[in-house]
Structures are given as structure tokens and as C-alpha cells.
Write a protein that binds this DNA or RNA. Sequence first.
DNA 1: AGCACA
Length: 313
Amino acid sequence: MATAGPPHYASWVPPTGHSAPSTAGVDEVRTIFVLGFPPDVKERELQNLLRWWPGYEASQMNFKGDQPMGFALFTSAAAAMAAKDALQNLVFDLETSSTLRAEMAKKNLYVKRGVTGMGTETPPFDQSKRLRTAGDYTSQYAPPGGFAPAPASWVPQSYIPPAGSFDPYAGYCMPPLQPVAQPLVTSVAPVAPAGYVPMQNTKDNPPCNTLFVGNLGESTNEAELRGIFSGQPGFRQMKVLRQGRSTVCFIEFADVNSAIAVHNNLQGAIVMSSDRGGMRLQYSKNPFGRKKEFMNNHQENGAPGVPTRDTNT
DNA sequence: AGCACA
């Protein structure tokens, strides 16, 4: 074992949306400096780790010898510090047990015009949009899917290209994330997970209003889960189930779209208290709110096998 | 690789 354990779970303080966001301190340092990556880390990994973070603008991986140094620029110093705290002591790679150290940088990352860390040969299309959108995150951690350039085939959770090009959603054609229904819980800003781990989700069920969370270790802390989910738009309720060595969890949302958004956005999100890194999100087999159908199908107070004639539909 | 509760 020897898990020195991911120490402080940085409870994420939302970058204050009301106090003059971007225009405030123009010469403030809003760049973080991250050490502790395994030598074979790719710049892209840093980008993918941070690209959903509120206020993220650009990042870059430099190599001093074989010691990678990451830099990431945010829209504000507050956003940068929040990200810094979240990355602090993050176990980046379980195999090499490399733990990240993050600090505020000495000076801001210089971003060449048109390069935001999304790749060097950046397509011209949404650079400006990307930057503009970033500011919007200050009020609420909106679903990343919202600005994903998303051709219909873009499946957010497949960080790893599916080997057999198997797409469980082929038949469902993800609705393009229309603005999620007004959150029932508006006040709570979601606690952003400390990071993401690529997660393959080979078997899934049709989208519904309830998510099933798997790949959670027995040590998983319910409060942490609640912190992550309860602030998500459309969140209704959550139930944690201990199953011996592992833990599972159900989350109900007000509507399917909210569930879809979370299913995509939080796929592989790192659960600190779990000993398995990222969580796996699937749609539940038995969603909430289907009691009637369930009961009807089971004829619980009638003759068990009697077929129901669909007299009224 | 684990799906409860109504």
C-alpha cells in the first residue's frame, strides 16, 4: 500500500463571479507552475487535465532535462489559485505514484496569439470563443459540453479512442446539450474534482435521469461524492451503497439532460477518498421515478403471469 | 465491471 494518501482535499472556492472578473488585475500573475509529472508526460495530458477548469486559458509543458514543468494560464489570479490548490498533491499517475506540486508562477505564461494550448496547429475556429467562454465559468461551472465544438460523433469520455470503435450511444445521438434545465439547487457551486483520469465506459445503458457511479473503493467518502454532485445543475438526490470491497452510488437528476451533462463532464473525475482514482459514470438500469411501470410489470398484487391487456394507453 | 429505492 504505502499510500501516503492524497492529503488535503482542496474544497474549491468558486472564483467569485460577482467581483469584476477579467478586467480587475491585468498584471496579476494568473499562471500556475506544476511539478511532479512523470518524465513521459505529454503536454496534451496537462491540457486535458485542465481544460475544463473554470477560467482555464492555456497551458504548456516544458522539459528541463527529463523533469517536466507545466504552466497553465487562467483568466484570473483567483481561478489560478483555485486550480493550483486542486492540483496540489494530486496523484497524477498511480503507477509511478507521481504526485503533483503546484505553485503560482513567477510570471504569466506567454501565449502566442492564436495558441491556447489546445495544440500547436490550432484550428482557427473557436479560439476566441474559448477565451470568451472561460469568463462565464465564474458564475457557475457550466457543463463543458456547452462549448465543445462537438461534431455529433464527439464522445467526451473517450479520451482513449475506442478500440473497436464501439459506440454504445450510436442509437441515441446525444442531444446537443441544450441549456440544462434551471438548476433546482442554484446556490451551491459544484466542488470541482481534483482532476480526471481517462475512463473507458464500455457498457452503458440508455440515458436516463439517474446515474450509476462505479469504480469507487470502499474508502470512498460520501461527503466528497456529495460535494461533487450536489452542486451539479439538476441534482435531486444521491444514494450511496456499500458493497463490501467497493462502493456504488446513484444520483437522480431533474431531467435526462442534466444527467447526460454530468455523465459526460465528470466521467473519470478523481475521487480523492476512493482508492481507485477516477469514477465511472453510467446511466442507471433502474432510474428513479419509474415506480409505476415497475409495479405494473410485476403485477405485484394480482396473478403473477397474467398478461396486461393494453386496454388504455 | 459492482444497479437500490419506490
